[in-house]
Write a protein that binds this DNA or RNA. Structure first.
Lengths: 249, 249
DNA sequence: GGACTTTAAATGTCTGACATTAAATTCGCA
DNA sequence: TGCGAATTTAATGTCAGACATTTAAAGTCC
């Protein structure tokens, strides 16, 4: 592992990249201990703070973990599914909020991906997954629920549907799509009538899942997508009209 | 923004979390300049190296960028789609390589997600996307191609299919699924006969895309998944037999 | 032999300094 | 007055050395 001291990039970035490559390429394996900071600073011919900055970069990506004490040090971390979920959600949320992605585009992507899980979930979902879906539908029908709580319950419903597919890789991929939509969904204010329609569609999906009817779940998701899109359009149109009422003169 | 000096967590991790929250919650907006390292170290009552470690953590996630010079400093970074792609691919690759995810599970997830793009891509794909797919099919049919090059071309083919959907959020989500599979695919050695079958299936998919036949693309992907799964099973079975021939005694 | 103490090795943090970069300012000159 | 070159300045990048803290292992005493 070598670095180029004349490169324009930060030394810490170069060192982090060198170690990251070693991990990705399998030269450093899970739970293996890296050399101590002092040894790394000798090896790369840089100071200890520079090495530390490099290690913090890797720690931020959950690639390593550090442990203090006599037998401590930096260890190659097994990237767990929950860690990966969290990164996925953060990245997706920022991507949507920072790039002026239209609600339409995000919504389309989200439902397209979720439909990918529908046939698998209908076949494999456990009684537990179905019970979670039913419980969330029940919660969503309660009158006093805040918009935020309604959206959170919506996310939980869809999570159960996705997890029902029994494929952790799929669940990981969908985490970003489903959870990152929540801030966008929160922007829509749900009236009682809107909620009732959504709950009814959720019930259709749960019924199809109970009957192990993959096509039914897929169609239910499509209907929900259409409902969500038209709802969002109505809200955005109303907002535009309220903000610029003079254009009608 | 405050931190707790008595918390067991690293100060740099706490500071990074505080700033990250400010960005995610919109209190710091894109291209806004953060206080200088000296000011941050005063504000959080820590030393400059500690602040720097926190900033490097954020830089590793592409949340900030730094600029040297008189008007330099740390700026909130707009997370670009290419940045997000790269993170997605790294995370997905590590997740698969470190968690003993079976080929079957990864393959199922990948094709399920890709089928989600099929109808959209069939409808919206440009002539360019189709041309890329045709070009890659042509490349894949050439005899002298190494396994690595064949797999890379395979990835390029599927990328074109996914990008054809014209939804950047979908492309971003699929980046991990498609690209992270490549190392796993590379583990399979393709014989001439295997390649011919795969190329034929690719051609079916391209034909369906040309005819704007979404169902055809979907079915083509399902056929390709079945082919890939049976191919992998054969390879793994052969390997197991070669490694443990005594078990037949 | 078990409980306690000591030791050592590692990360976590701080101080202060210097190097480097790049924009803003100043100065000199036409 | 206007413009280009030199200077200043403010920021990050890097370094050296020190001390604090944590943790496990080695050693010691009863």
């Amino acid at each position: 592992m070598k670095i180029d001291p004349k490169s324009p990039a930060d030394l810490s970035a170069q060192i982090a990249a060198a170690i990251r490559d070693a991990i990705v390429e399998g030269r450093l394996i899970v739970d293996q201990r890296l050399p101590s900071e002092a040894e790394l600073s000798e090896q790369f011919e840089v100071s200890r703070p520079t090495v530390r900055e490099a290690l913090k970069r890797l720690a931020a990506q959950s690639l390593i973990r550090t442990q203090r004490g006599a037998t401590g040090g930096a260890f190659v971390n097994r990237l767990s599914f929950p860690d990966a979920y969290a990164q996925q959600i953060t990245t997706s949320t920022l991507l949507l909020s920072m790039n002026a992605v239209s609600f339409e585009t995000a919504c389309e992507a989200r439902y397209a991906l979720e439909r990918a899980c529908a046939p698998l979930s209908a076949t494999r979902r456990s009684a537990d997954h179905l019970a979670t879906m039913r419980a969330e539908i029940h919660r969503q029908a309660q009158p006093g629920l805040t918009d935020e709580a309604f959206c959170a319950s919506d996310v939980a419903f869809h999570r159960a549907l996705v997890d029902g597919a029994g494929n952790p890789v799929l669940s990981y991929q969908l985490a970003g799509a489903v959870e990152a939509m929540q801030p966008l969904m929160n922007m829509i204010t749900f009236t009682a009538r809107d909620r009732a329609r959504i709950v009814a569609l959720h019930k259709d999906i749960a019924d199809a899942a109970e009957a192990r009817d993959g096509t039914g779940v897929t169609n239910g998701l499509s209907a929900l997508e259409a409902e969500t899109q038209s709802l969002a359009q109505a809200v955005f149109a109303a907002r535009a009209a309220a903000q610029a009422p003079r254009t009608a003169d």
